[in-house]
Design a protein around this nucleic acid. Structure first.
Lengths: 140, 140
DNA sequence: GATTTATAGTTCGTATACAAAGGATTATTA
DNA sequence: TAATAATCCTTTGTATACGAACTATAAATC
């Protein structure tokens, strides 16, 4: 990291932003060969956890903005990663399912996330890794 | 934080993203009354550190994408936060300066950042704060 | 000194992020 | 049950984020 103004490098917003920027960029590159984005990958993991969730449930679980998610889901339907089915009991609700294409890649895609995680954390001791994750979770 | 699929909550990309999302959102709200965004605030802090920097230098210092920054700087010129001056020695270069409007708010704006930082970190012990910042810096 | 290469910034295309407003539909209540 | 409120989701507008291509200018090399 280059030299920074005054106490800016002490600023959490900055540190978190840049740490995320780097981690996100690395993962994004890993996912490029699948034609998936980080966000889209996250949606798949959410649906694998609970297939048939509504968009609202997914947003709540994964702390995503509903307006943003609307567009993400549309693109994922267009590219064949997920399927939307209208809920028969509630005309407002669309239930979300992963596609065959997605399910066939499930193990590989989860492995990519684990690999990304390993890349990010390998510079730390196991103790530091656990501590960092705990501290970040406390921030959320 | 709500319950999450399998070991997703162990994933650094997710944890960093959501921690940043929350920190960023809080700071953004603080800055709204000034009509500034987080990114624009960061640019001002960079220029206060070294007035007259070029966009390229600013990008390198603050780890920003040049394409993104181009638009940010244009909006900041339009809204009167910064001034661009063509470098007399190099026709490619635009040198950047903070405006009077920005300088008059300098202390308040830096205080806002410090307040944001305090809000984020207050739940941790001093030891945890220092540790978290060190770990994040090591990620950048 | 003409050609090539490198650098500074901009522009374009695509994908988030999120506030705010707008349908559509369901639930609640007077 | 008609009116009101709450939910789900989409749309709109503005601001990043970033790869890729492009323009203008400067530097390097033959």
């Amino acid at each position: 990291m280059s030299k920074l103004p005054e106490d800016l490098p002490e600023c959490m917003v900055f540190l978190l932003g840049k740490a995320y920027q780097k981690a996100h960029g690395g993962f994004q590159k890993q996912l490029k060969k699948y034609g998936l984005t980080n966000m889209q990958h996250l949606v798949l993991e959410g649906l694998w956890y609970d297939e048939g969730m509504t968009a609202a449930e997914l947003c709540k679980l994964l702390i995503m903005d509903k307006a943003t998610t609307s567009g993400v889901l549309e693109r994922m339907v267009d590219t064949g990663w997920i399927i939307k089915k209208l809920d028969p009991d509630d005309g407002r609700v669309q239930r979300l399912y992963t596609s065959e294409k997605a399910n066939q890649l499930k193990e590989k895609l989860i492995d990519e996330r684990k690999k990304a995680n390993k890349n990010i954390l390998e510079k730390f001791t196991l103790e530091e890794q656990l501590l960092l994750k705990r501290l970040l979770r406390d921030l959320i």
